[in-house]
Nucleic acid binder design. Structure first.
Lengths: 218, 218
DNA sequence: GCCACCTCTTGAACATGTTCAACTGAACAT
DNA sequence: ATGTTCAGTTGAACATGTTCAAGAGGTGGC
């Protein structure tokens, strides 16, 4: 019962994540986590401010998994479309273990006040990990992404991943088929648009978009 | 206490919506709604399956308000950009009353299983009301929107509104300034892209996009 | 009149996230 | 040794969404 217990905090963390994976969010009560970890309910709250904070730990795990899955692809080069496609599909895979309860978890994540929100301070580590992947997607692409886009594109692609995840949540198809179809279609479209962005006719639209992104970010 | 009480159901509904508006989602307990309405707690559950279903009623109200706000604009004609801009800004205004608690409500709405989700069967009336507005935005625009886009664009714009709302939720700026800036920038960008979509160079990208939309919708 | 049925209503009971006052025990100062 | 402090721990208590067995009251059949 106290074998792998380096310290109480990480023991509770590990217990919670296991239960989340096995039972989902709602079915994993704080009492169950505490009991399974062999501590009192209140103790879990001493180490984690809320259930959301435990979910946030789960997101961190998923993001680490995602990063590990795409390491080889990112190092291998390739064009923007194939890199983006691979990274987005890998994110679907990384979430795959939680597919049954995916909607529950993303629900928690989208709550603006939630610690598990991708925008929350508590998620900073997971967010930066994930955003770094898309920076690599862009910077390592050959042929190179046009200079003008290189600054903002990674963040836009990261947002696109959040969109894909949101879609995935509502996607009841087996094996997330529809979500994968979305990625298969969207990645080449992004690649094509990035290539087209060099054309003079599109210069205005591209400038508008970049200006909008910069304005809105502040 | 029983003055304006046509029937219990609508009395509970009205009471709940008032409390939601005044106190927000979390602070409005089912007990408070029932007590304020002068019925037992369980009675509220007889008429509304869950608290989410009451929130869904609130969304219906907001959507009706939105539709009323844009009636004149839609009847007046104008180009796509100005029509889209007006309708999106009006949606920000319609949600304005709930700005303080906006994040709470949208949180509820985004939960996939939730009755308040824009995609839920329970929200069908609100959804169709809202989607119809964007069909009008597109169909009533002069110069006319290219034939090829007229089918899918309304739904895409409706999704864009959901995106704007999601942004608004995370937008802490006074008067939702950043959200309005997003709309002010995005509407002309959409207008410009729709105009450009006629160009032969973009034909491929447009076809890809439309194909993607059709594939993914199923 | 009486019974069966059905809609509507009640309020106690339940499960769960969260809080909190009290307790433990180790580290440290005197 | 003794006292002090404080991070860590406990479990009962609380608030709230939700459920449910019980009943009220009306309507129609006989």
């Amino acid at each position: 019962m106290a074998d792998d217990r380096l310290d109480t905090r990480s023991h509770i963390r590990a217990t919670a994540l296991r239960l989340f994976r096995d039972r989902g969010y709602a079915a994993t009560t704080m009492r169950a986590i505490a009991e399974e970890a062999g501590v009192a309910t209140g103790n879990a709250y001493y180490h984690f401010a809320s259930k959301d904070h435990l979910v946030q730990e789960l997101y961190l795990d998923v993001n680490r998994d995602h990063a590990a899955r795409v390491r080889a692809t990112l190092d291998a080069g390739g064009d923007l479309t194939s890199r983006l496609r691979a990274v987005l599909l890998a994110s679907v895979d990384a979430f795959g273990d939680y597919h049954a309860f995916g909607s529950e978890f993303v629900t928690v994540a989208i709550r603006p006040g939630s610690a598990a929100s991708p925008f929350s301070p508590a998620s900073a580590e997971a967010r930066e990990l994930s955003q770094a992947l898309y920076r690599e997607v862009v910077d390592g692409a050959t042929p190179a992404v046009p200079e003008a886009l290189r600054g903002e594109l990674p963040e836009l692609l990261w947002l696109a991943q959040l969109g894909v995840t949101l879609f995935w949540v509502h996607d009841g198809s087996p094996g997330a088929r529809r979500t994968r179809a979305l990625v298969e279609g969207a990645a080449p479209l992004v690649g094509r648009l990035v290539r087209l962005s060099r054309l003079p006719v599109l210069r205005g639209a591209v400038d508008d978009l970049l200006g909008l992104v910069r304005t809105v970010r502040a």
